[in-house]
Amino acid sequence: MTTVLAVCVAVIVTVSVYLVTSRELKSIAMGVFLLGHGANLAIVAMSGSPVLPGGLLRQPPILGGGDLVDPLPQALILTAIVINFAVMGFLLTLLILTARRTSTLNVDELALEDPPSDGPVLDGEPGRRR
C-alpha cells in the first residue's frame, strides 16, 4: 500500500513539475494545485498501511476494530486541503483578473508589461484626494 502511494506521489509530482515549468500561468497554477495533492497523499502514507501483513484489511473504527490506522495525519490533511482550496480560489480569481487587465497569461509577456523606466505606483494620486 505504501509502495502504491509512493508511486502515485512520484507521478503526481513529476507531472506538476512539468506543468510548473511551462510559460503559461494557467498551466503553472494547475501544476501548483497538483503539487498540493501530491503533498497530501504523501502525508496519507504517514498514517501507516491499512493492509495487515496477512493481506487482510484493518477494521475501520466504526466496526469496532481495535487495530486502527493513525487518524491524525488525516486530520492534518483535512486542514491542508481546506487551505489549498482557499489558495486555489484566490489564484484562479487573480488569473481571471490578470487576463482581463492585461489580456495575456504568458509569463514572458507579463514581464514585458513592466517598462523599467516607469515610476512606482503612487498610492492614489494626490490630485484625487479631497
Binding site: I28, L97, R101, L110, V121
Partner: peptide, 11 residues
C-alpha cells in the same frame, strides 16, 4: 488596487 504592474509582478 490591482494595477497592471501589481498583477504582473505578484505571481
Amino acid at each position: 488596487g490591482h494595477s497592471r504592474r501589481q498583477l504582473g509582478q505578484a505571481y
